[in-house]
Simulated assay, not measured.
Amino acid sequence: MKNFKAVNIGDSTTYRCYIENDGNIFVYARNKKRYGWRFDEEQFLIRFTPLIPNDENLQWKRRLKRAVKLCNESGLWAEIAVVWDNLYKYVTLDEKNKIYDMSWDNREATVAYCKKHYPFMIKIDSNGKEYLNTDYIWELSRCELKSMYFGYNNTEEKEQIRKAISERRKYTIPRIRTTYDVSFSYTPEINRAWYSEEYKNCGNGHYYLALNHSTAVFCEDD
């Protein structure tokens, strides 16, 4: 299908799209019939999530692939990138959801099932007991990506983050007020970065892992 719709990751706006004969993707500007922007597939997937009817698995796989690519490029969250890569290569969305449901009914049976079919999901604790690595089925497994936003100084802030990660230099943004109270931190000793959007003057909100200087993945709500 050449015509489809996609959601802009940055502002959640839906756009009409068209796959051209050379494989490039044309995104129509809002309320325009001729004007818009042209991207190759990689550029397109950095900015947009395709809305393909009845194919949640394909959309999920594309997010997983992109998340692995971003982590490999930045070096951040290497252990989580392994989880996403295994999900991308070996597990369907329906199967992941099935394991999630199983885990609530019978944890021992779930461990046995995963050990047989997906041994990479199993870990061993300090007492030698096997358990399911829940990163494969909880929030991080959904791989919900978003573009970080730092208000009017957005481009400059992202450039400072990019430099800090590249130089392995500690960097924090304590708080920037947008529609949320936004913060960011990068710790070079463990090569991890975090991004949060808290409700104004609240201290609760949405929390993410930063995959590079620009994109984050949902972790939890508090």
Rank of each mutant, 00 (worst) to 15 (best):
H117L: 15
Y118F: 07
Y118W: 09
P119E: 08
F120T: 09
F120S: 08
F120M: 12
M121G: 04
M121R: 08
M121I: 03
M121Q: 04
I122C: 12
K123M: 06
K123P: 06
I124Q: 09
I124D: 15
D125V: 14
S126W: 15
G128K: 08
G128M: 03
G128F: 12
E130T: 07
E130A: 02
E130K: 07
Y131G: 02
L132R: 08
L132H: 06
N133V: 05
I137S: 05
E139V: 09
L140S: 01
L140Q: 00
R142Q: 11
R142N: 12
C143A: 00
C143K: 00
C143I: 00
E144T: 07
S147T: 13
Y152V: 15
N153M: 14
N154T: 03
T155D: 14
E156Q: 14
E159L: 10
E159N: 07
Q160F: 08
I161Y: 00
I161P: 01
A164I: 01
S166E: 09
R168V: 10
R169N: 08
R169T: 06
K170G: 04
T172M: 04
R175L: 10
I176Q: 01
R177Q: 13
R177F: 07
T178H: 08
Y180A: 05
Y180K: 05
D181K: 08
V182Q: 01
V182E: 04
V182H: 00
S183Q: 07
F184S: 03
F184A: 02
F184K: 01
F184V: 10
F184G: 01
S185K: 04
Y186R: 01
T187Y: 06
P188K: 01
I190C: 05
N191Y: 05
A193P: 00
S196H: 09
S196G: 08
S196M: 11
E197W: 10
Y199K: 12
Y199W: 06
N204K: 10
H206E: 07
H206I: 15
Y207F: 12
